[in-house]
Design a binder for these strands. Structure first.
Length: 214
DNA sequence: CTTGAGATGTTT
DNA sequence: AACATCTCAAGA
């Protein structure tokens, strides 16, 4: 580090504005549906693969606890090897493979030892678009991070990153834009067959980066 | 724009 | 046998 650049220098203060501090663990230490709603507008940042990419979250789903039959940690499954990260520390990541080929990124929520999480379903690309276009093979920009499998692909997240703490490189979430409650829509979760009527999917109304707007 | 089928590996 | 999905091709 350069000795001419003290922590109190204007440059240091300015850079802390450009790169806000990651969300603290207490942010995640709340009911899953609350966290899912409040993650809209937050920024997920990845330096996996050596280049920084980032997106503003526009769509999430809450998996709220053992009584949630659609959850990987629903009561009938108990605690297993796969869902164990959901019992972990709030603010860590739970990554799993779906349909044998797509990784999905979840944020662990609520209390430790209580299995709950938020699936990140879509984001608006804001940084590192060139790398994401390569990872997504020439897709239009609005589709780079649209859908949970695509989002993971754009961020280069895989099962290796399971349980990573989301407050530090190479993968973290920081505050982004403030999303007013009037901008938020809620509806049934996608691709599940249990608890289909629970409105636990949240998205930014009208945003073209959302996977499905209904 | 929509619909439908196939890919693919882990979990129960 | 099901699965918290995606892509491509074909049709409207």
């Amino acid at each position: 580090m350069d000795s001419t650049e003290s922590a109190a220098s204007p440059r240091a203060r300015r850079s802390s504005l450009v790169a806000p501090a990651p969300l603290p663990a207490d942010f995640y230490r709340r009911p899953s549906d609350t966290v899912a709603r409040e993650l809209l507008g937050a920024r997920i940042v990845s330096e996996l693969g050596g280049v920084r990419v980032a997106g503003e979250i526009v769509e999430t789903e809450a998996y709220v606890g053992p009584h949630d039959a659609a959850s990987h940690a629903a009561e009938r499954f108990g605690r297993t090897n796969r869902n164990d990260p959901m019992f972990g520390v709030p603010g860590t990541v739970y990554v799993y493979l779906i349909y044998g080929m797509h990784w999905c990124v979840n944020v662990v929520t609520d209390a430790e030892e209580y299995p709950a999480a938020v699936l990140l379903r879509a984001a608006m690309p804001v940084e590192g678009l060139e790398v994401m276009r390569e990872r997504r093979m020439g897709r239009p920009d609005r589709e780079l991070m649209r859908g949970p499998g695509n989002l993971a692909r754009a961020l280069a997240v895989t099962g290796e990153h399971n349980r990573h703490v989301l407050d530090r490189p190479p993968l973290w979430i920081a505050p982004g834009r403030e999303v007013a409650i009037e901008e938020v829509n809620a509806g049934p979760r996608i691709g599940i067959t249990q608890a289909v009527d629970w409105p636990l999917r949240f998205w930014v109304a009208g945003d073209p980066h959302v996977s499905k707007s209904v």
